[in-house]
Structure formats: C-alpha cells, structure tokens
C-alpha cells in the first residue's frame, strides 16, 4: 500500500546549520502518527519542510507516491496537505469568522472537495460560533487554537499536520482539543501530530516516531512501545527500535 505521505532521506538546513539528517517517515490513509522529541529535535522543521517552507529536494517528500518536495506552500495546500502551525499564526486584526472564511475562500477557489463546513466546525467547537465576530487576538489561547485547527480543516485536507497544538494551554483545554481529533480522523484525514507530552502523543496516535537532534531514533506502534524505550530515544542514551 502506498503511503499517503512519506519522506525519503529528507535533509533540511537553516543556513549553515543542518537541522535534519535523512528523515524517513510514512503516513498511511486514515492513520494518526505522533512525532515526539525534545525541543530542537527537528519536529517542526520536518513539518515545515513537508509544507514547502524550507527548501528540500523534490524526491525527499512524496504525496501518494508523487514527488512534491519543495512545492510552494499554497500548492501543497491545494494538493490536500494542511498545517496547524506552531504558535497558531492567526490573522490578527480579523474576526474569527474572517479567519475561517479565508480558508473557505481558498478551498472554493481551488475547487477542493471535502466535508468540512462552517456549521460542522461549529458542532466540533461550539465556542467558535459564539465568538464569530470577535477579533482573534482577544480570544483565549485555547480558543485561538480551535480557530487555527478550524482554519486548517476548512482547507479540506487529506493530510493534517498539527504542530504542538497543546503548547501553553491548560490541561482541561488540551483534553477538549484532543477530544476533537478522533472526529477529524473519522473523516478519513490522516494526521501527523507533533507533541511534547509523550502520554498525550501515545494516546492520540497509532504509531509514533521519536526524534533526537535531527534523526529518527525510535519508531513503532504507540501502544506497544515502552516508557523505557521512549526515554532512551528521547534523551539519546542509546537508540531503540521496536
């Protein structure tokens, strides 16, 4: 079975600093994969490379088997890959509804088909309906995160990349947001979830990859990997493979 999304010996650098050293990951239809690792391990860099925000070789990223590495970000969205970026990156000065409408507009322009509509999103996160006219910068962190997720979903993605969606949020809010993920998966959307919280990452994913200093140090089924294996892979005391 061809992976929906895969990377092949992916290399990425920021100027002279090499951030990723040959990353191979795979994401299959309807699957949720977690990407864990300490700060600076290269998780966000990996997502940014996939999204065309860093220059990478054409063959290093494949979507349904087609080489797409280095494709412009807006074209990647058109091809069905959306991202909930680190730090949420909402359009400040615009209302919640306008932030979401930007995605609806572009999906319509590109002729993207999918099941996500404003009413459906309002079912998933009712607060977004209530706050529709509020400027996004006056929302709480959790509400902003819901807008960021909603904006990505309204791009009608087949692959959703979530970059640290729990960062800086209260535990109750994190639970609320993570509770929405199964419903998103139920639509057939495959997901890569970057997460610092290992427990959260394991419970939200089928498989996981652990990264350390730009390399994948552990991979396996989330339910089968032991805490000791993750500990070693996370902190670099020997590499483990399941």
């Amino acid at each position: 079975m061809t992976a929906v999304l895969s990377t092949h010996g992916l290399l990425a650098r920021y100027g002279d600093f090499q951030a990723l050293y040959g990353i191979d990951i795979e994401l299959h239809q309807g699957e949720a994969v977690a990407l864990i690792g300490a700060n600076g391990a290269g998780k966000s860099t990996l997502l940014r490379s996939i999204m065309g925000l860093l220059p990478v070789g054409r063959e290093m990223v494949r979507l349904h088997g087609d080489p797409v590495g280095g494709t412009a970000t807006d074209r990647m969205v058109q091809k069905g890959v959306a991202i909930v970026p680190e730090g949420r990156r909402l359009f400040t000065g615009m209302s919640v509804e306008d932030n979401l409408r930007v995605a609806i507009d572009q999906a319509a322009r590109m002729g993207a088909k999918g099941g996500w509509t404003l009413p459906r999103l309002h079912q998933l996160f009712p607060i977004l309906k209530e706050k529709a006219r509020t400027q996004v910068q006056s929302l709480s962190g959790g509400q902003q995160q819901m807008v960021a997720i909603g904006r990505a979903l309204l791009c009608q993605p087949r692959v959703l990349l979530c970059d640290e969606i729990s960062l800086g949020l209260a535990p109750k809010v994190i639970r609320e947001i993570y509770a929405a993920l199964p419903e998103i998966r139920a639509t057939g959307t495959a997901m890569i979830v970057v997460e610092q919280d290992v427990g959260l990452a394991r419970s939200a994913s089928d498989r996981l990859y652990c990264m350390l200093e730009g390399r994948v140090t552990l991979t396996g089924r989330s339910a089968e990997i032991t805490r000791e294996q993750i500990g070693k892979a996370y902190f670099g005391a020997g590499h483990g493979v399941v």
Binding site: L53, V77, F91, T92, G93, M94, V102, A103
Partner: peptide, 14 residues
C-alpha cells in the same frame, strides 16, 4: 488582509 497579517500563514491557508 490575511497575507498582510502573516504572509507565511496565508500561504498555509492556500
């Protein structure tokens, strides 16, 4: 307006 607020995030929205 979106591109003016954050060019990269605008590209991420298509």
């Amino acid at each position: 307006r979106a591109a003016s607020a954050d060019v990269e995030a605008a590209a991420m929205t298509g």
